[in-house]
Design a protein around this nucleic acid. Structure first.
Lengths: 198, 198
DNA sequence: CCTACCGATCGGTAGG
DNA sequence: CCTACCGATCGGTAGG
């Protein structure tokens, strides 16, 4: 039996390459503005060869986003398993989130996950919604233990405000001119934990 | 002399209609995924008629984003002119920003401005960058007077973190299930001004 | 994985 | 503002 180069769990180094390069282009230009020919030209294969590995262009996006979600969720679960003090846990969650959002090895997948949701297939959307709910629950627990998220007042989802502050950095944070993702992460954590430094 | 229906400063109710409906579709589906035919079908004209009013599809986007910027900047300038106490000024800036971001009469323009920057023409990008710098400066002044943004530590642009928290609400805030934009705005202002409510 | 190609759709134009 | 249409490009397929 010949080994299939298609399917999900295979070796597929070419497949990985298409995912990696596709993720980069999706992040830079957006899903709709990226063509199969953009991707295959960067990989160095004919445009038709894409479909030896993926059923459609959207399938590539789905998989890129799934991988982004896996990275982000696995990291948070690992942090929670360390059973740190709540304040240290929050600081670490913020740190890891910011790192995954900006490190070259992960940012393409995570940014696409966050900013290209609209283009995902319905199936991927549903699957990712469940994982995202789990991710949010981890943050909510952490914030609740710090009394930063209490059911009081108006049911404000503080963790989502925090996500916004962090995720938006993908739009403006520039490598040299701005503080590093890690420094910024610590400042955000400090702002939340110690309040405004008077 | 016949009056031209083209050009910028004209009456052009049809032109306005294309802008309004275009803005709505750009927000919902994104610029690339919206076709000229989507827009004209919703307006109720032939697809070719678009180009009596705009030179290109991108011109529509440019104008939509410009209008979004005008709304947001004019509102902030008006707030600053009222010369409120700094805390009240910040609260009002947040209120107005959230309203423009969620009110049906403005949100399409503002959300497109914020989330479709990538697709803008180079000229529009440059023009909007200048206006945005002005907008940011207003917020920075306000935050500085409250000692919420000090040049200390690591040059953290607090106003951009705040923008992220606010702008991200466009992705998750749902009319009925969640607090209203105004309630949320007040909570965010309270969180910043009074610190975490112990 | 390649070459050759197809049907559909897109932004935009022409001529009235 | 309409009708008719065009050239380009796109995602995807066929056959090897």
């Amino acid at each position: 039996m010949k080994k299939k180069s298609n399917g999900r769990g295979m070796q597929g180094s070419r497949r990985q390459e298409i995912l990696r390069i596709g993720a980069g282009l999706f992040r830079e230009k957006g899903f709709d503005a990226t063509t199969i020919r953009d991707i295959t030209a960067a990989v160095g294969i004919g445009s038709g060869s894409t479909f030896c590995h993926f059923r459609s262009k959207r399938d590539i996006l789905d998989e890129v986003a799934r991988h982004g979600m896996d990275l982000v969720l696995a990291e948070a679960e690992a942090v929670v398993r360390r059973a740190l003090a709540p304040a240290e846990q929050l600081r670490t969650l913020i740190q890891r989130h910011m790192t995954l959002l900006h490190d070259p090895s992960s940012r393409d997948f995570v940014v696409v996950l966050l900013f290209e949701q609209r283009a995902l297939s319905a199936a991927a959307k549903a699957q990712l919604a469940a994982s995202m709910a789990r991710y949010e629950a981890l943050w909510e627990d952490c914030l609740r233990r710090l009394n930063l998220s209490q059911k009081g007042r108006a049911d404000v989802p503080v963790h989502r405000l925090l996500f916004g502050a962090l995720n938006w950095t993908a739009h403006w944070l520039r490598p040299v001119a701005d503080p590093s993702p890690q420094v910024l992460a610590d400042e955000v954590a400090g702002l939340l934990l110690n309040g405004i430094p008077g």
